[in-house]
Amino acid sequence: MSDALARLLSLLSLLQTPRLWPGSELAQRLGVSGRTVRRDIDRLRELGYPVHAEQGGLGGYRLMAGTAMPPLLLEDDEAVAVAIGLCTAATQAVAGADEAAVRALRKLLQVLPPRLRRRVETLTSSTVTHPFALAVDPVNPDALIVTAAAIANHERLRFRYRDEDRHVEPRALVTAGRRWYLLAFDLDRDDWRTFRLDRVTRLAATGARAVTREVPGGDVAAFVASRTMQMAPTFPADVVIHAPAAHLVDRFGGSPPGTLTDRPDGTCRWLAPPDTGEWHARRLASIGLPFEVSGPAELTAHLSSIAALFQAATAESGAGQGRDR
């Protein structure tokens, strides 16, 4: 990389920090003259970066949002996807990832055209996150944008869901892993309903004003979690883990739900609160330690069915390798 190109990239990196940069400070940071800074600013402008100059003793340079994305960055839909991804990453419990995501998001929003920035802000301001489930069902981005806009604008929605037409007043989007839920007041059923957004089709805003309603209990995420949990049977779990309780806490990165009790033989007893069989299985698999299920029978049956699937898969793989030999 030439010195001139490296300096131009360094200048662009400085300008992406949202503030007014005096020319003298830029020159000092880059180790060049003020004339060189002015020439490099002109080169950035030629490349499409909207660098605004303010004159006077308190003047300087500032990178502004333009009418289009600057060259060599992202397409509009890619920029929105990255911004939404950064908003999600900023809420994750990964050391350093949240702060880095916030910094990156601030730089990206600074140069996004206003029409794209509004789309990002509309979606993120209408979304609540809770760690209920991990899912991989794809959701149409346009459905997210239309729904989020309707929530922000207090506008009613019509759509098709499970072969039925629905007319609702949307309240919030709730994420659970990669699955999206719409919490809305169903006007035909006169009650709150939760809809999986990947199953929604023919979605359209009606233009009619939606009434502002308070969610029962006041907590959107908790309400959606309780409604979703009602769709699958739940039960507690009584499990003996072949390791001390401290090891289990280390594997989870904190105390797991329920209670842990050390036993004289070096194992521990985990009494987990009611949850779905899928969630119990995921938690037990994630710790990577031997265990025995003391109850209930529903959990034993669920784990047995999962074990049979894995055993069949590995048996078929082994048979295939034998045929290859």
Rank of each mutant, 00 (worst) to 15 (best):
D142W: 06
T194I: 10
R156P: 00
A133H: 12
E155D: 04
N140G: 03
R158S: 09
A176G: 14
R162Q: 14
D188P: 09
D186G: 00
G177P: 07
R179D: 02
H167K: 01
D188L: 06
D191M: 13
A172E: 14
I145Q: 13
A184I: 07
R189I: 02
A135M: 11
W180L: 08
A149K: 12
R158P: 03
D188V: 10
A172G: 09
L134V: 08
F185T: 03
D190P: 06
A184E: 01
P138S: 07
P141F: 07
N153P: 03
L182P: 09
V168G: 02
F159I: 01
F132C: 12
I151V: 06
T194L: 10
L182E: 02
A176R: 11
W192T: 01
R179V: 03
L134Q: 14
E164Q: 13
Y161F: 11
I151Q: 08
N153Y: 06
L187G: 04
T175K: 15
T175P: 13
A184G: 01
I151E: 10
R171G: 02
W192K: 07
A152W: 09
V174I: 15
A149Y: 06
I145D: 12
T129F: 15
L144W: 08
E169P: 02
V139T: 11
D137F: 07
H154R: 13
D191F: 05
L182A: 04
V136C: 09
D190Q: 12
L157C: 04
A152F: 09
A143P: 02
A149G: 11
D165W: 00
N153D: 10
D186C: 04
H154N: 11
L187D: 05
A150Q: 04
L182D: 01
A172Q: 14
V139A: 05
A133V: 13
N153H: 11
V139R: 04
A133Q: 15
R189Y: 05
I151L: 07
R193C: 05
L134Y: 14
V136I: 08
T147N: 02
F159V: 00
H154P: 01
V174H: 06
V136M: 13
W192F: 09
E164V: 15
P141H: 08
L157Q: 04
R156K: 06
R156T: 03
L187S: 05
D163A: 07
T194G: 12
I151C: 05
R162T: 04
E155P: 10
A149E: 09
F159A: 00
R179I: 02
D191K: 15
L173P: 08
F159L: 03
Y181W: 08
A148I: 09
L173M: 14
R166P: 03
H130V: 15
G177N: 10
A148H: 05
F159G: 00
V146A: 08
R178G: 09
A150N: 01
G177A: 10
A150S: 03
A135Q: 13
R178W: 11
R160T: 00
